[in-house]
Amino acid sequence: MKSKLKRIINNMNLARVRFSIQLISFALFVYGGYFAIYLGSKLPIFACPYNGKSAGACFLIPLQHQLSMPAQILLGGAGIAVIFGILTFLFWFIFLNKAWCGYVCPFGTFQDWLTYLRKSIGIRYSTYTQHQFEKLSKIKYILLAIVVLVPLLIGVGALGGEWGAAFCQICPARIISPTFSGDFSQWTIDFSTKTSMVLTAIGMVFAGLFLIGSFVKKRFFCFFCPMSALHYIFSKFSFVQLRKDGSKCTRCGDCYAVCDMQIKDIADDVVSTEILRDDCILCLKCVAACPEDDALHFDIFKLKAFSSTKEGFEKRMGIAKPKGDAHDKHTRA
């Protein structure tokens, strides 16, 4: 029974399953407000509350808001609220690890759909060179530093209130997410102060770059996402992990070829067991694309919930199996 269930899971059509989950969560986090669903404001995804119909809010909003409290107040007890905020964030996070990005995040889903659109038009996609990859990969940490440091500087009075939620002002999700529920009010430049003018103008440029970028490059924004950087800090504490058995890896490179994030380690690194990297969105495409039994596996605690298998690979690839094959017999038994 158990092995049967395992076989069904390992043979599943991941692309279809993932598409359905993404569709449901997109509907939930973009339109959930219509059904009075609200999951709090500590979610580890870009469910942007600037979209009034969102069924929850991105954790970066309350984080920036709380950290911008005056320093005396923040350190005099209100800091507890920050710690509880992080704990609530962690509570959500540990269940799915970075699969929040690959399966739930509406902004990530939107990028995947742009990719489908590009594919259907027949335009090929772009990739970074390894050199570009390494340089650009650091940007998300800079953005995370903006998320944390700018509010702290407001708290000590070094920056004015117009810097509040500075990251949100330059975040393309703030501009694009509300559009899905028919709210175009974020497609503006705020001229009320010079700071907001510059920040919102940068936001508009980023929105433009986002649209072009995610059209030609898969998961363009996720590469720069500060939430992704924040995830990676805590990813060790999660119940679910992506693991690799290097001894079974033949370094065929299939996993790297399907990886939306161009993570080279997934194919190259045959030493590490914990193969989750900071750019990973845990979409599990690599597991589905791996032709070796158990070389890559998605674990819940230590249980292999979804592993790469030869059979699953063949099934997903549509490789016809000759009748009477030894392998076939083996799997039937």
């Binding site: 175009f184 497609w187 503006t188 430049i189 705020d190 103008a201 508009m204 929105a207 433009g208 649209l211």
Partner: peptide, 11 residues
């Protein structure tokens, strides 16, 4: 204070 025109132009 918010301008759609400049924003859309910039984008």
């Amino acid at each position: 204070y918010a301008s759609y025109a400049y924003a859309l132009l910039l984008a």
